[in-house]
Amino acid sequence: MSDVRPVKPRSKRPAPLSLRLTDEERQKLVDQAGGMALGAYIKSVVFSDAAPKYRKHRVPPVAEQRLLAEVLARLGQSRTASNLNQIAKHLNQGTLVLDEELTADLNHAVAEVAWMRVTLMRALGIKS
């Protein structure tokens, strides 16, 4: 009887990671690596305990969530987007009649959009 060894299934290795660098970036990497192979150097830097850790998802503070929820609620309650769409349609068709009611609706829509802009900017931490 012959010696038959069981065949181990090969573990499939993940596809290699590709990174595009400019000539200057590559030269800087080579200089930083010194005599190390580039792959070994990159792994040593990336998997170092000192490597920066990034959160997967930024969790907005509660105040931001409240402001964003308020904007979404207001959008859901108003027909501003639909009304503006209808106005644009009539304007493009040349059938827009500008009366007092439409003027009031337009002023209200402009105020709503301005409020949403300011509130969203505040929620995202952007100063106007």
Rank of each mutant, 00 (worst) to 15 (best):
K12Q: 12
Q77T: 05
S2W: 05
V7T: 11
S82Y: 12
R122G: 00
V7F: 01
A88Q: 10
D31N: 14
E25C: 07
L102E: 07
K8I: 10
Q27M: 11
L17D: 00
A51E: 02
E70N: 06
L67I: 10
A37F: 08
A37T: 06
S11Y: 04
I126N: 00
T119C: 03
S18I: 12
V118R: 15
V97M: 02
V97Y: 01
K8A: 09
K8F: 08
D105L: 14
L124S: 04
R5F: 12
A104F: 07
L102N: 05
M1Q: 03
K53T: 14
L106K: 04
I42H: 01
L84Y: 03
M121T: 06
A69G: 08
M121W: 07
K28V: 03
V46H: 01
N107S: 09
S48P: 00
L38D: 01
E25A: 12
D49Q: 14
F47T: 12
P6I: 14
V59Y: 04
E100L: 13
G125V: 08
V4H: 03
T119F: 02
Q32N: 03
R20H: 09
E112V: 15
S78R: 12
G39Y: 13
A81N: 03
N83G: 08
N107G: 10
A88T: 13
E112L: 15
G34V: 11
D3H: 13
A114R: 15
V97E: 02
T22Y: 02
A40Q: 14
A111C: 02
E112T: 15
R74F: 04
I42D: 00
E112N: 13
H108A: 12
Q93C: 02
R5Y: 11
S2K: 11
G125W: 11
L72T: 11
L102F: 13
S44A: 12
Q27Y: 09
S82W: 13
K12C: 00
N107R: 15
L98Q: 08
I126E: 04
R20W: 05
L84S: 02
R55N: 03
R74A: 07
W115S: 05
K127T: 12
M1I: 07
P60C: 03
L84H: 05
D23Q: 11
A33K: 10
A51I: 05
E100C: 03
A40K: 14
Q86M: 10
P9D: 09
P6N: 06
R58A: 06
